[in-house]
Write a protein that binds this DNA or RNA. Structure first.
Length: 258
DNA sequence: AAATCTTCCAACCGCGTGGCC
DNA sequence: GGGCCACGCGGTTGGAAGATT
């Protein structure tokens, strides 16, 4: 069924893409490269808005996009990264080669969220202290100026709520100046992320949070989530088998994280 | 077999941000 | 400094496909 419609206001086509449109878009991007999306509809001869063209390319036509079910490794990584990053789908997808932010978001909304909510509802009163899930990391990578040493994390802030034994809460907002070395923004960002882990370690050291549980968490963080070196996602490096096969372990991890 | 319900995902929409003038 | 424009992101929606009654 052809569900494509013509927008009355802009006159551009909306709805499902046809094979012909895909072909035109693919040729255009192959010829001119990605970017300059405002020029793509004209260059490709498509009666589509630039947003629609960009989305179609990024989510469907781009080479090496992985289709099909998510592997247990991928699911595990999504769970971990979502715990750290929240709904930062593009960042999470960036750690999953071949997966798009839309894929990850859809998978989360349809598979994981539904399964995990009941887990979150479980009574965890036995835990005296915990790091709650409102740990928010806000790196906002946008475009990168070639002329300036723009930090990837220029507006980064990390907030963390620690629930104390007496029932009170303490919010920590961590704003850290980022060095202006432009060499590897990815390392900077992930290092900053791990700085947050270090703060947890420090809190554990002074006994303000549960040491044992957070040692487990921190070991996982340091082990699994390290800076991407040279643009290669280390978690998916060739030859790394990992020990994520048993998904039941991962559910335990999720429980631990909450 | 038909009707209804549920699931899933491609695509749309609105908004925040950065760059440029 | 302010306005405009383009890009990128996350939330939401619409409809096809599958499952259930």
């Amino acid at each position: 069924m052809n569900t494509t419609t013509i927008s009355k206001s802009s006159g551009v086509r909306k709805g499902a893409w046809t094979e012909e449109e895909d072909l035109l878009l693919r040729r255009c991007v192959e010829m001119y490269g990605e970017g300059k999306w405002h020029k793509v509809p004209i260059r490709a001869g498509l009666n589509r808005c630039r947003k629609s063209c960009r989305l179609r390319w990024l989510n469907y036509l781009r080479p090496h996009i992985k289709r099909g079910d998510f592997s247990s490794d991928e699911i595990d990584l999504i769970l971990r990264l979502h715990k750290l990053l929240g709904n930062r789908w593009s960042l999470i997808a960036g750690r999953l080669p071949g997966r798009t932010a839309n894929d990850v978001k859809n998978y989360w909304n349809t598979h994981l969220q539904r399964k995990l909510i009941p887990l979150q509802r479980q009574d965890r009163k036995c835990r005296v202290l915990k790091i709650t899930e409102n740990t928010i990391v806000r790196p906002r990578p946008r475009t990168f100026s070639s002329a300036k040493n723009v930090s990837l994390c220029s507006n980064k802030s990390i907030t963390k709520t620690i629930h104390k034994e007496d029932g009170s809460k303490e919010n920590n907002i961590c704003e850290k100046p980022i060095g202006d070395a432009p060499t590897d923004h990815g390392i900077q960002w992930w290092t900053s992320l791990l700085d947050n882990c270090n703060e947890i370690e420090e809190a554990a050291a002074v006994g303000s949070i549960n040491l044992e549980e957070n040692n487990k968490l921190l070991s996982l963080l340091h082990e699994e989530i390290s800076p991407p070196i040279n643009g290669v996602s280390n978690c998916m490096q060739e030859g790394q088998s990992g020990n994520w096969d048993d998904f039941s372990v991962d559910i335990d991890l999720w429980d631990l994280l909450n």
